[in-house]
Amino acid sequence: MNKKAIICNHVSYQKNSEQILTDISGEIIKGNITTFVGPSGAGKTTFFKLLNGLLSPSEGSINIDGKPIESYSPIDLRRTVGIALQEATMTNATVRENLMLPYQLSNRTFNDKIANHLINQVGLSNDVLSKQTNDLSGGQRQKLSIARTLANQPKILLLDEITSSLDRLSQTGIETLIKNINTEYGTTILWITHNLQQAIDVGHDTWVMVNGQVIEKGPSELLENPKTELVREFVKGVHK
């Protein structure tokens, strides 16, 4: 039987009496790449923040690696379930300093060897290390954000892809990167993507979210042949 990395049971989330996520249940299989697709405002980012502990569900329960999410200390949880945030937020400093951040926060030593390893791992060359993050392209920022999250060696990696569309080359770069991390470290990956072909090509499973709910979930191929009208509409809209 497949091991479960994440189990959600009737998870809902409200903010200021606004219903943002409604009754989400489902399992994420350990070692898989699961993509999350859906229109803007569907609640994908909010769901990821629940998994990483930046938010807590209003109702329902979440299990991470066999343990209830509340049984983790917030810090352990956030390092076990790493997130690369949607905006690829950077501190106003160099690439190297951004990579150093997770090490500083946990009082671990950081050196050039580690910096080189982290940056090469995501397919960037050493000479970006001294650059200011403001000078990076969207694709580079995203990769740096992933590298910084990987510094905590998470068992589960949440990738919230930046919405502003990346150029074709950067997209392929991220695709390869995700596959590599997955095979090399066996990391369970949850990936919010806006490219359905990528979801089909790279992801094992997919969850389709619309309006705060998971409408369909299963093997990625379901995107080629959706069961529900809502998902059919969404898929058609993306391909237009």
């Binding site: 990483n52 810090i75 956030r78 390092r79």
Partner: peptide, 16 residues
Amino acid sequence: EDQIELYLSLGATPKQ
């Protein structure tokens, strides 16, 4: 807020 969230997401204490 986004900076604070970034720090927290990487496992920072509130003080950090």
